[in-house]
Structures are given as structure tokens and as C-alpha cells.
Design a protein around this nucleic acid. Structure first.
Lengths: 343, 343
DNA sequence: CTGAAAGCGCTAACAC
DNA sequence: GTGTTAGCGCTTTCAG
């Protein structure tokens, strides 16, 4: 496999009998070059299958037309967000490069360094720790997770970062309200990471405050024992369910951290002879495609994840291109209650 | 937001009172530089938070330490493969950049161009059309799909490409054999794309020939009507199930294209009053994590998708680094039958 | 052992 | 209008 010589501007220029800059200008759509020369150059370029060298251009321009996308993991929770990003970028000349952090600040820091050394023109991130972004000097738009509310009180927080999130607080409040209508105060909740030092944990606490808010609105006292933390895998979801069953009456309402984990919860409940929704009412979170296909079909909170990705992308591109003045762009999507048969 | 000046080798050199080349050599671990100077340079570099400029280095070296990863979509079927890739690359200095093709040759071609113009040092690909790779002059390792067998006969095919695949033929043969044991000739199969002009379609035909092989081994004549094509989404899976139910006895065996679509199939069967596995025996394909959590838990063919990703990655890196002599690296993983309660 | 200098492919300022 | 040229940050050869 002999090394194939790549086609350069110079090669085209030589063949066309013009200078490199004429070719460069043509390639970049400058109108300085007369139509005839233009045509000739373009046709030769096509014929030689020319592709500009990204590195050379990036080096020269100080920008790369690459967008860094930081996600916690490759697990399927962010697929729709990623699709939204890809779709939105298709109409631009930006290309995404994805890096995963395993929800670990160390990986996140190194991911950021890698991206900046490319250098990417901007970053879309589902963050692990806000600290990692202290010295990032390219535009960043946070997605899906962000301390947009005070995790204790649920009050909106004013910040100066760009973000696009779903209002998890409201989602949880609405879901809890629905369950209260059915089960009174007998409403349990499975949440993810309890660690408030991570953005993921803060998100869970924001959700908890939405839950508390709903209780408060119905004059139901909050019971710490109704909250099961660290539902962070299918397996944990099943364990938490087993644990819950030791402490609970036959009939109750349960909010699960997300739709995926609901599969484990439902399976565990059914194995233990509970019937859904007769004994237990269940509400998930996300509205995955499969939610309407499992049995019983899953009542859930719909989050616009695809739109979340495309919206964040549009924001980022507009910030990059307009050299935005520092006015933060913040979008909060309102979630929607979707009733199916698990409640 | 004032543009932050990036730290260059020159900046470090100036501060350390040495030349750029001394710094460069130090950074690249050359042993030409005496320990004392080395230390000093490294400490200054750390202090100034130096990161090499990727573009400059790539331009100079003609390689980028970036691996392009081409996948058909962002849907969750390739998560484990991607995890395997990320994990395997972690121990190297290569960074992956993911591009999706939507299973469309047009997108695939443009994805390849983009990658080559970076230029990436190698490509990992779940291909759409083999033609797209004709003029690719960097090492490529194909994953998961490849015409490794003749789609008509199921016979192994000799080629000169690098690939890592699961032996779908064998998987399908084994699964069919198991169903035949239970249901005799009453075994149906849901497959994906029928189009043999795409690699995805060829894969499905290879699977079909595994199915036929099993029938043949049990002297059961092949019946075209037992094959339902184009099971390419949850929705289609449900439609195919509805269609199937019009033509079938109460009791039969059914092989579904993959685990995910099995969710739709099972739900449709249950809605129509069929009991699993009493009336219908079902086998999926993939062995997703959720397979053991849905009810009934899903009997399936286990594919080592994580290992597939990491194995392909190791191959690619070794090819890149050793300037491999052209001896193709081809790995075929044997799938495994996993019995649960849907059969 | 050290540093000066060339040049990777490209763009844009500037001269013709 | 068109071409010449400097230089982006880095590596590496080669002379000192």
C-alpha cells in the first residue's frame, strides 16, 4: 500500500496554471476571481478529488470547525440528544467529536484538554463537575444537566452560563401530583446519585425538591423514608425495589428515576406478585420509545431530548459565529406528563 | 471574553531560557536532553498549563492520533461497541471521533471525506456500502457487519479486508436448531433489511442462510412464507407480528431480528392473548442488558459487542503502528445461546 | 549536547 | 485581477 500523495492547493494551481492563492480564494468562494478561472479551478479540483487539509486550515485560522461533545457515557440515555446534535450540525460545516467522561471529573478534565488542543471551536457538554469548565476559553453550552435551580429549595438560580435543560423540578412535581391523586401520601421515589458535588447529583436533588413541592401543595409531610437514592443501574433499581417491598403496604405509588430502570422495577414487582397498576402505580421519566411497548405500557414524563440536543447545538453555533457578547443563552424545556397503563 | 493567548513551545522556551527544539524534544521524551533541563522545562510547562496544538502537530507529522469511527446511527445498538472502542483507546494516545451515516451511502462517503481531511490515522467502521472504502488510504477495520460469508450459501468468503464480526450465520443456525427442537418446522423468522446492495442487507441474508442450514440439518423444507423482512424498527416489529398472527397456528417458534425489537413483538403477542413461552417461543439476538429484566425474560443469542469494539480497536492501532504488511486481520466471534424464559 | 532553520498546507495581507 | 509571501505551532535534520 504505497502512500498516496494527497492533493494540495499547489497541485491544482500548477495544473490550472494559476497561483495557489487564486485556488484558495476560489475554494473559499471569494468573488475576486473571474468566472472562467473559477470554473476551471473547480473542475480540476473535482477531477483531482481535492480535499482541504483540516489541520493546515485549523492551524492557519486558529479554528477548526469541529465541535466537541462531552457526554457522561455511551449508554443509551443520550442517544436522542446526540441525534439532535448531529442533525443540527448537518446544516453547518461543523463536525462533532464525541468524548465520554464516565461521569468522572478526572476524565472530564482530560476530555476538555484534548478538545481544546485540537482546538475545537466550541463545546456541548453534559457536565460532571462545573469546576472543570473554569478555564475553558471557547464557548460552551451545557445540556440536560445544570444547576439551574437551587437543589434544596427548587428556586431558579441566576447564572451566566449557556444551557439547555429539561425542567426536572416541574417534571417531578407534576408526576408526584398525579401519584398523590391516586395514592395519597403513599408515594415513593427512586432517585439517582445523592452526591451534590456532581452536577448529576444536583439534578437529582432538584428533582427531589419538585417531589417535596408537590407534597407540600397537598399538605402531606415529607418522609425521608420514601426516598431511595442511588438508583444508578438496572441492578440497583431491582435491589431498591426489593428493599422497598420490605417496608411498604401492598398498594403504593412509585416514581422511578427513568424509564429504563423502570423495566427492572416492574419485573421485580411482578416477580413478587404485585400487579401493576392495580397494586402499584408507576411513573417513569424520559419517555423512551420502548415505554409504550413494554407491558404494562409505562406512564412517564416526556422530555424533549432530541430537541434538547438540536437546540443546544443551534445556540452554540450562533454563539461561535456571532462572537456573542456574553449574554448567556438559557433554555428550559417544560416536560409533559404522558399517561399510559402503569398508572 | 478576551481571547486567551495559548501557550506555545516558544513561550516555554523563552521562560526556560532554552530553544524551542529543546522543549519539543523534552515533550517528546527524547533522551538527548539532560535531566536538569528536562525537569525545568517540564515544570514550567506544567505551570503554564501547556497543551500541544493538535493541528500544528498533525500538519507537521502528517498524522493526527485521531481515529475515525463510522457508525450507522446513534441508536443504542452500538453502545457497547462504542464503549469497547473508547476503553481500548484509553490506553493509547488516540482519540476517537464518531460520525454517523444514517445507513445511507451518501452520508457514508461524506463522512469518510471528512475523516480523511483531518486526517485521521485510521478508521473503524460499521459499513453501509463497501464501495465507499475503495479509495481510503488509511487503515480500516470493519466491525459488526461485513460480507464474511456468501449471503446465499453461507459459505465463508476469502477477502483481504480487516474485520471483526460476530458469526451471525452460526448464531442463527443455533437459535433455529433450538426452536426446531421445541416447535418442529413451525419456526418463523423476523429479519431486517432485505436489500443486498447494502452491507446491512447482506448481513441479514447471511443470517437467513444460517436459518436455512438448521432447517436442512433437520430435513425441514424451507418455506419463504416463514420469513418476515424489514423488521427495522419497533413499530415494524409490531406490524410484522400482527401480519404473522393472521397466517399462523396458535403455537409456533419465532426468531426476532434483535432483542430490542422483541419488546414490541412480545407486547403485541400478549395483547393478542398469546402466552409466552406456552404458545409462542421467542428468541432474540444481541443479549442486551435488559433481556433478562423484561417479562418473560428473553432467550437470546449473546454477541460479545463490547469485545467486538475493543478487539477491532486493538487491531487498528496495531496496524497503524506497525505499518502492517497487508496481511488482513480477521476475527469472527462465536455467538452463544442464552436460555431464559421466553423459550 | 544544543539551537537554527526548513517546511507541513493553508490563508490573507499586500504588492504588482 | 493576480501572484508573492509571511507565518500559524510544531518536529526534525543538521551544523555548531
Amino acid at each position: 500500500m504505497g502512500k498516496i500523495k494527497t492533493v494540495r492547493l499547489l497541485d491544482i494551481a500548477t495544473k490550472a496554471g494559476v497561483s495557489v492563492s487564486a485556488v484558495s480564494k476560489t475554494m473559499n468562494g471569494s468573488d475576486e476571481i473571474p468566472e472562467a478561472t473559477r470554473e476551471k479551478i473547480l473542475s480540476i479540483a473535482r477531477e483531482m478529488d481535492y480535499h482541504p487539509n483540516f489541520s493546515a486550515r485549523s492551524l492557519r485560522l486558529g479554528r477548526s470547525r469541529i465541535i466537541g461533545v462531552i457526554i457522561p457515557n455511551n449508554d443509551f440515555s443520550y442517544n436522542h440528544v446526540l441525534s439532535g446534535i448531529s442533525k443540527a450540525l448537518e446544516e453547518t460545516d461543523y463536525t462533532p467529536i464525541f468524548i465520554s467522561t464516565k461521569d468522572d471529573p478526572k476524565y472530564e478534565k482530560s476530555a476538555i484538554k484534548k478538545l481544546l488542543s485540537i482546538p475545537v471551536d466550541g463545546i456541548l457538554s453534559v457536565p460532571v463537575s462545573m469546576d472543570s469548565y473554569k478555564n475553558v476559553f471557547v464557548p460552551v453550552v451545557f445540556m440536560s444537566r445544570y444547576p439551574y435551580r437551587n437543589p434544596r429549595t427548587g428556586e431558579p438560580v441566576r447564572t451566566n452560563d449557556n444551557y439547555v435543560v429539561t425542567d426536572d423540578y416541574e417534571g417531578q412535581r407534576i408526576a408526584t401530583t398525579e401519584l398523590i391523586k391516586e395514592c395519597g401520601g403513599n408515594v415513593y421515589i427512586f432517585l439517582g446519585s445523592e452526591n451534590t458535588r456532581t452536577v448529576a447529583g444536583i439534578k437529582e436533588h432538584i428533582r427531589l425538591s419538585g417531589y417535596k413541592k408537590a407534597l407540600e401543595e397537598h399538605d402531606i409531610p415529607f418522609d425521608e423514608g420514601h426516598v431511595y437514592w442511588n438508583t444508578t443501574s438496572l441492578e440497583k433499581a431491582c435491589e431498591n425495589t426489593q428493599m422497598l417491598l420490605k417496608h411498604v403496604e401492598k398498594s403504593f405509588g412509585l416514581m422511578v428515576a427513568n424509564d429504563y430502570f423502570s423495566i427492572g422495577v416492574i419485573s421485580t414487582l411482578q416477580k413478587n406478585g404485585y400487579s401493576i397498576p392495580d397494586d402499584v402505580k408507576i411513573i417513569g421519566f424520559d419517555d423512551l420509545e420502548m415505554a409504550s411497548y413494554i407491558s404494562p405500557s409505562l406512564t412517564t414524563i416526556h422530555c424533549a431530548r432530541y430537541r434538547l440536543g438540536s437546540c443546544a447545538t443551534q445556540h452554540l453555533v450562533s454563539i461561535i459565529q456571532s462572537k456573542n457578547t456574553g449574554e448567556a443563552i438559557q433554555t428550559i424545556f417544560q416536560p409533559k406528563f404522558v399517561k399510559r397503563s402503569s398508572m
